[in-house]
Design a protein around this nucleic acid. Structure first.
Lengths: 186, 186, 186, 186
DNA sequence: GATGAATGAGGATTCATTCAT
DNA sequence: TATGAATGAATCCTCATTCAT
């Protein structure tokens, strides 16, 4: 039972990532999950509901962040570290995130499922804490905004080599660039 | 004749913006255009084709850029000016651009219809020219990338007041922030 | 379950016979089968597929032939008997066969669904066996061809009284005529 | 004007032969005739009407027969000559005749457009005359029927080499076979 | 708990034909 | 006479969802 439910969720996530919400059919998901189509309705009652469940699960699984710990620690490489962490995650879940952003833009994600908002709010809260700890007088919002932009542009354009596969020095170069940009306004 | 065609295009753009490609139905477009559904097919043969026509038209109408002229002129406020221009356009066509980015992410836009690429490539070419004129040794790609990020984050998050409605000083503050960020790496 | 499937097949055959493939609509078939149109698609996926299924079934049900048994037996009234058998079948399934021939001419039947070919090949093989058994040196093809002609002309032209309703002597007269014709070339 | 009309008829015949009545569209015919679709309606008012016109024309153009002259002449090779004539015509207009027979079977041809009937009736009348002249006491109908069967079987099955391309001796062999068959019942 | 069977609603597209010029 | 423009009516087919077992 947990079994079938998991199969469905796994299949659903694959299909949704590949085709997006509208293009995915419950038929295809059921087939990929090797389950009868009705079973899926038994457990999730609605395609929309299945989608939301899947999104929630994905967000939980992939986007845990260390941002608050970093802010607490008071590291002076704060921006560098969260950028590194985020770029790593994004490059590893490229398709998923593309879908999340796309669905967000289409208005299919609301509240705590709206990926860009979740990211943004997380960043903002973390940065705010960081600024407080470091006695920096600056608007956390605009920095969160800017970082989100950096991240999203990395979703829109696929690089030959994804970030997480880059050599350490290459990563560093990128991080330096972004950090320099961000710090310029402090 | 041009008349009906225009009605259809106008209606199509509205509907596509409101609902995206998949959710839009030719029926609804026809109704909004006050035209028989067939007429739409006579003129555009396919929903997909209508969509592409509409997108092309939109790109032509709204996204002419002064970037090359600016690069030629050799203004030292180059980044500031193109950012201003772009933010103006974006804030005025928010819904349209949301749709364009969304469809791009879903893979429904290719080649010269792929909005983010078009923007990015335009920026890159302009920046390259600018750098050459100013004898700046820097990678235009990374700056184009960064600006695209800035722009997209402005698409993702709706502000209370859209950019184009802001007071001059407020605009200037925003532009200063971004420009400082960008110039920090020169 | 078998129930609905059978209803559909039965209805489909009726409609196809009455109107031919192109003129028949899945809607009408569904209605005649007292089934939702979708159900038909669930079971047969395609109108074409339903058509082929129905044709196959019809061929199996109505056109089993005794020709090989007759050839084996070595009866000297071989031609007479198969002609009788065939004319019986044809006159009893006149509408069906008209449709089959018509669709064949339109190129909508291929391979083992192509009624005229099936008939011809069956005849040819049977006659060949017959000739071998009887040590007759003649081309089975031309006789099969000729018999097919006889049969088809009985499809094209409706008689007042169908063959199967004729009195024994009348049948005999017809058979004699055809047999004389055929045997003249032996 | 005559010009356009002719273009349309020519195009129509091509398309109808290639696709049959139902599968042909007035659009395609108009395109092939290099004429506006409406023009076709101007001149023929209806697809059905165009079809009938075209059929009539075709029957007139291709199926003039010498049968009555032959009957009058009182040749003793009567059957042979009309068979030769007919097989020649059929093999030269194979596609057209396939279409005619197919449409006849579908009930789309009535009265003097019904090709098989036309052929049959022509044969019957000619044979009757022949029998009278030759003082033969036999039913012309059954012979006409039989010849029609021969002809139709030549429509159903395409030979590698069409009749009209065969060498004289080969034609003769075929004619001898058929004639023998027919005469056996005299 | 799981599923085979069935469906209402809708969607893109095609076709013969008419209108107005 | 010829035609560009427009359309009502259908057609095949798909999808999310429910029913009965």
């Amino acid at each position: 039972m947990r079994d079938k439910t998991d199969q469905i969720i796994k299949a659903a996530i694959n299909v949704f990532i590949k085709k997006g919400f509208l293009q995915s059919t419950t038929q295809e998901i059921a087939k990929e999950a090797d389950v009868a189509e009705v079973t899926l309705y038994r457990k999730f009652s609605t395609k929309q509901n299945l989608f939301e469940t899947v999104i929630k699960k994905s967000l939980e699984n992939h986007f845990k962040t260390r941002i608050f710990k970093l802010a607490e620690e008071g590291t002076d490489r704060f921006f560098e570290e969260i950028l590194d962490e985020r770029l790593e995650v994004i490059s590893k879940n490229h398709q998923l995130i593309k879908m999340l952003v796309s669905e967000s833009l289409m208005g299919n994600l609301t509240g705590d499922l709206d990926f860009p908002s979740v990211i943004y709010n997380g960043l903002k809260a973390g940065i705010q804490l960081h600024f407080e700890k470091q006695n920096i007088a600056a608007d956390p919002g605009i920095f969160a905004h800017q970082i989100t932009g950096i991240l999203v542009s990395n979703v829109l354009f696929v690089k030959e080599t994804p970030y997480y596969k880059l050599a350490k020095e290459e990563k560093q170069k990128i991080l330096d660039h972004y950090t320099t940009s961000l710090m310029a306004n402090l």
